[in-house]
Design a protein around this nucleic acid. Structure first.
Lengths: 124, 124
DNA sequence: TGCTAATATTAGAACACGCTAATATAATTG
DNA sequence: CAATTATATTAGCGTGTTCTAATATTAGCA
């Protein structure tokens, strides 16, 4: 019904009020939405996505110094990338002696799995 | 093994060559990786993610003018957001008379489903 | 044919991002 | 303890992003 347009249904100019009276409001809270966006944005960068893939592919954790040559950016950049992935809940850290090992979270695993599974779905 | 560190295993300074000899190389092609990043980055913005949610929540397509008040940005911005989602393979367009209806692709549906399903996985 | 409505496109401004280089912190080793 | 190694943090720079406002395009209608 919301998408049914009749004669009298005109284009409302943007009034600035985003009260959404025309489409079914999504059942997500502000916080959930923001968290999702943070997660997706964290994964949505070449360096970070590649890092995530490398971490997911390793058996028992990867440390920063191993990622540096693989990603081809500076140590600082790797650290920043991992911090961002951590903040987004996509990786976990484990400190062991002088090193810090990173592993992926279940959420990241599921996300990567979906990316793999739906790649073939060549938007028909 | 790659993550096993012994005495002689030193930190190699970044030589600029990113040939990745230390971690198992991920089985993704350059193109697949770039496409995934584009998809995730497209979804990873407040405006676009909210648009995606609204489109996914509607039964049979949403048009731009319906999204404008809901998203609270200008018409041009909505159009740009939808174009980006389209380029990323997350939505489909259908032209009908004067309007253009947007629907989500199976890939987007799966992606949103995973975000919902894994939200509870409060990184244990 | 003009007129209006829906959407797309463009230019430009404000801001965010991602990198490097340098420096700081923390843990290990001699 | 000093020296070294792994990682984190910070400043700053170039670039990309995302918005608005204005304009262009396209389709229906009088």
């Amino acid at each position: 019904m919301a998408s049914q347009r009749t004669e009298g249904d005109r284009h409302r100019p943007a009034t600035g009020k985003s009260s959404c009276e025309c489409v079914a409001d999504h059942p997500l809270t502000e916080d959930q939405l923001a968290a999702d966006v943070q997660t997706l944005a964290a994964a949505g960068s070449e360096t970070r996505y590649e890092a995530l893939r490398l971490i997911a592919g390793a058996e028992s954790g990867v440390c920063v110094c191993e990622l540096e040559p693989a990603l081809g950016v500076s140590q600082g950049a790797v650290s920043q990338a991992l911090s961002r992935l951590y903040a987004a809940g996509l990786v976990r850290r484990r400190k062991e002696g002088r090193w810090r090992y990173y592993t992926v979270t279940p959420r990241a695993e599921r996300l990567l799995a979906v990316m793999d599974e739906t790649r073939a779905l060549d938007d028909e």
